[in-house]
Amino acid sequence: MTRRPRILVFDSGLGGLTVFAQIVRLRPDADFVYCADDAGFPYGSWKEADLVRRVVGVMETLIARHAPDIVVIACNTASTLVLPVLRDHWPRLPFVGTVPAIKPAAEHSRSHLISVLGTPGTVARDYTQNLISQFAAHCRVTLVGSATLARIAESQMQGQGVCDEDIAAEIAPCFQEVGGARTDAVVLACTHYPLLVEDFRRLAPWPVDWIDPAPAIARRADQVLRDCGFDAPVAGRGEARAVFTSGKRPEGSLRATLARYGLAGG
């Protein structure tokens, strides 16, 4: 096709910007709509049935309004729970999900001690347990559910101060020592967490590999676009704008943050 593809990137907040940035690197020609469901944030506090209804309802509005060629669910919580429902509801619209990067962590770990850092819902879900059984059975896996890191990341992105002690307390359970071996890989199983990765590195008790799934998600999105007939990127750069389900128009620090990602607010 010669027209620009339109990609809808969806998250509960600003964490999906980590995925958005990687997709833009591969497909700068695309038109993007980045939707933050800030009216529903954080997803980790929702009951599962309520969250399914919430995401499907928001998606109905977004798809009708923006007519995307593909949808990227840049949220682990939504992907591990709602993705099958979305695919059933819109069988002709490709959805690309985000799942914990347990397989690459297990493949690259030398100590075979890895941790999965996510929301309480993501680390407790059967989907995550199945990934561990399938790809990390030879590893000792520590599941760490944080109820506050996504909020901390949101605060930082909006120019608010964050406390080192709060971040350090949340990541501390990821670091395990067993029989002289140490955790050497931590899966970032929430797209908000790569926004804090420099703080994680600075505050970690020892160096580890922080596994960010965003590059792999971007490669998958690019492949899905090609499968849909958008083979070669069209010349020039597409448009990109951010929308918020609360209806707010970004101002101040948030507006500046979106601008750094090439997004127009509103």
Rank of each mutant, 00 (worst) to 15 (best):
P250H: 08
Y43R: 09
A235G: 12
F135E: 11
L254D: 06
D11Y: 09
R87A: 11
G40P: 00
P94D: 07
D31T: 12
I211T: 05
R260C: 10
G57I: 08
V24L: 12
C228T: 00
I132G: 02
L254C: 01
D231Y: 12
C35G: 00
V243T: 11
I73N: 13
G161V: 13
F175E: 03
F135L: 03
P194H: 10
R255K: 15
S111E: 10
H192S: 01
H89M: 12
T183W: 06
A147L: 09
L258N: 11
R27G: 08
N76P: 05
P213A: 09
R249W: 04
L203W: 04
A124E: 11
I114L: 08
V96E: 05
S115L: 01
A168S: 10
V99A: 12
S111A: 09
R220V: 08
D199M: 11
E198L: 06
P100F: 02
P213Q: 00
F230M: 10
P100G: 01
R87H: 02
A204E: 12
L188G: 02
Q129K: 15
I63H: 02
R110P: 00
A189I: 04
T142E: 13
P213M: 01
K248F: 13
H138F: 00
A136S: 04
R27M: 05
G238E: 07
A39M: 08
V123R: 12
L117R: 02
Q134R: 14
H108R: 15
R226Q: 15
R202L: 11
G180M: 09
S115N: 05
F244T: 06
M59Q: 14
D164Q: 11
V72K: 01
D164E: 13
V186T: 02
T245S: 15
N130V: 07
D69F: 07
V234N: 03
Y43T: 04
L188E: 07
I132H: 05
V72D: 10
Q223C: 07
A124T: 01
A21W: 00
R27C: 06
C163S: 14
G145Y: 05
P194I: 10
G238Q: 09
H192A: 07
C35K: 04
G16V: 05
I63L: 10
G179W: 03
